[in-house]
């Protein structure tokens, strides 16, 4: 498998196939993160992911590879999501998230709605750490916070998520 650097070099040289390979390799995780951080709406997530790739393409020639490419793309995505939410401060959290689930997959719907109910800062840390597997050091760099703050935010996020899940079920976890 061609590594990211080689694909980026080829893309910078005008190779569209190289870009499509980069896109296919990194967009699934990008889309998931954006979708969960931006309110669980497909249309918004698609708009933001497009914006992420456009911004990334403008800066790839100066990217110093001091982080992994997906981490860098995630940092751009987080900025895009935050900018969007600043432009739309009154947008309410959706009552239902747009995921096609089997009628019996209540747990999945429950989890997604509980994740969406979290405050933005909690949601960012929980999604990045517990779902996408970023370390606290990486999250600190992505969110512009200290590692200690990332850990304490995750503790509070997990507690808030448990509360949201127990509210949804009406039982104490």
């Amino acid at each position: 498998m061609t590594d990211d650097r080689a694909l980026v070099r080829a893309f910078l040289g005008g190779d569209e196939h190289a870009f499509r390979e980069l896109y296919r390799r990194h967009t699934p995780a990008l889309y998931r993160i954006v979708w969960r951080l931006a309110g669980g709406r497909d249309e918004d997530a698609a708009d933001i992911v497009q914006d992420v790739w456009l911004r990334a393409s403008r800066r790839l020639d100066t990217f110093r590879w001091d982080a992994a490419l997906p981490t860098w793309l995630t940092s751009i995505a987080i900025n895009c999501v935050r900018e969007r939410s600043r432009r739309r401060p009154d947008e309410a959290v959706p009552l239902t998230v747009e995921i096609p689930v089997a009628r019996t997959d209540h747990r999945r719907l429950e989890l997604e709605q509980a994740i969406q109910s979290l405050a933005a800062g909690y949601r960012e840390v929980l999604v990045l750490h517990d779902i996408e597997g970023y370390t606290h050091d990486e999250i600190a760099g992505l969110l512009g916070i200290d590692t200690g703050t990332s850990k304490s935010q995750l503790f509070r996020a997990r507690r808030a998520l448990r509360a949201a899940l127990s509210d949804a079920r009406g039982v104490r976890l």
Partner: peptide
């Protein structure tokens, strides 16, 4: 964690980006 590692792994399987998004991004570029 408030959910299991298996649940976290399932959370990483969706949602998938819409198929048409790739051509849309390439078109924008």
């Amino acid at each position: 964690r408030p959910f299991t590692k298996e649940e976290a792994a399932r959370l990483r399987t969706y949602p998938a980006p819409p198929r048409e998004l790739e051509d849309r991004v390439v078109g924008a570029l």
